[in-house]
């Protein structure tokens, strides 16, 4: 790890004053579960590290207006154990539970889950975010079994690593981003972006901004997350689906189905949403929606199997949501 100077601000205002105007000047350190590994691999070599764990305003989960406000440094364990989250947002509880290592859940934060870098092994082994060599990505003709099956027309082929992203997109959540000159709220759906060149990032956060909180609308929905995994112990899912259903009696008034770990961003499946409108959730309608969700998949040479996994994830998430409470 390259040496860095360390800052330990006590307020958001102090923290944002310490950030740089370009990537690489200052990195934010919360739970560190990704950040410290990135620094050990020299993938991130910040001159300054800004610890935000001692900023009280960034913690806590509470109701604010019509939202549940989740502080950026709330740990995955705190999120999972929170009574309001368990009641209103089983999809978030299940996504946090899917990060199966107690150590990671005790350390890792909600903000960090959204800001973690992709797990693409080309990126992690120093080939760059887009794995470009001689003007072409190494991924399409390379080892791509864990890469994208949607949104993969290039130049990005990695999958978003976020566990909470799909659930937050389905629930219509926003993130608050604060800089020294002001703040803005961004829909989580717009927070994740597909980078078009090696210099850009996979999230809309700017180098001088701090993600301070997540706002999840408390509108009643049936929601669930289902992850398909290779093993129960610590690993990222192979494919996942989060769903949020607004019900009218026993039928779906509107649905949001979002796939995870299949594209460079959480991947909204609008065709599944349309397939569900006005219908009751049954094994048949869930299967139809699941088929619609993966209809446009464009798998690479080694990851065709992920299409089936994503389909199963959608079906099971829908059935789970229908069984759960509003």
């Amino acid at each position: 790890m390259q040496a860095f100077e360390y800052a330990n601000p006590a307020t958001i205002q102090e923290a944002v004053a310490l950030l740089g105007s370009r990537w690489g000047e200052a990195d934010v350190l919360a739970g560190g579960t990704d950040q410290i590994s990135l620094m050990k691999e020299y993938l991130h070599t910040p001159q300054r590290v800004v610890n935000i764990k001692n900023i009280k305003e960034l913690g806590g989960i509470h109701r604010a207006g019509g939202n549940l406000r989740i502080g950026a440094t709330v740990t995955l364990d705190e999120l999972m154990e929170n009574a309001e989250v368990r009641r209103a947002f089983p999809s978030l509880h299940q996504a946090a539970e899917g990060v199966s290592s107690p150590q990671i859940r005790n350390m890792g934060t909600v903000g960090g889950d959204l800001c973690q870098r992709p797990r693409c092994w080309y990126y992690r082994n120093g080939c760059g975010l887009l794995a470009m060599k001689d003007g072409r990505s190494l991924v399409p003709d390379g080892e791509n079994k864990y890469h994208a099956i949607f949104g993969n027309s290039g130049p990005a082929y990695f999958v978003s690593a976020s566990s909470l992203g799909p659930a937050l997109v389905a629930l219509g959540a926003k993130v608050k981003l604060v800089s020294a000159s002001g703040s803005r709220e961004v829909a989580v759906e717009k927070f994740f972006v597909t980078p078009q060149n090696e210099q850009s990032r996979e999230i809309a956060l700017l180098p001088n901004e701090l993600l301070t909180e997540i706002l999840v609308p408390l509108a009643p929905t049936h929601n669930a997350t289902y992850e398909v995994r290779q093993k129960e112990a610590l690993d990222w899912p192979l494919a996942a689906a989060s769903v949020a259903l607004k019900m009218k009696g026993s039928t779906v008034a509107s649905a949001r189905v979002v796939l995870g770990h299949v594209a460079p961003t959480p991947w909204p499946a609008a065709q599944a949403d349309q397939a569900l409108a006005g219908k009751a959730i049954t094994a048949e309608t869930a299967e139809e929606a699941a088929k619609a969700a993966v209809a446009g998949a464009t798998p690479l040479s080694q990851n065709g199997y992920k299409v089936q996994l994503a389909r199963v994830a959608v079906k099971r998430a829908l059935l789970q949501a229908a069984r759960g409470r509003a």
Binding site: A3, F4, Y6, L18
Partner: peptide, 22 residues
């Protein structure tokens, strides 16, 4: 070797410690 890596000036901002031993 690690200490020889040139560090460009970090951004302005507030109280910091290091990069040397603290």
């Amino acid at each position: 070797l690690l200490e020889k890596e040139a560090l460009a000036a970090p951004p302005a901002g507030g109280k910091t410690e290091g990069p040397g031993p603290v």
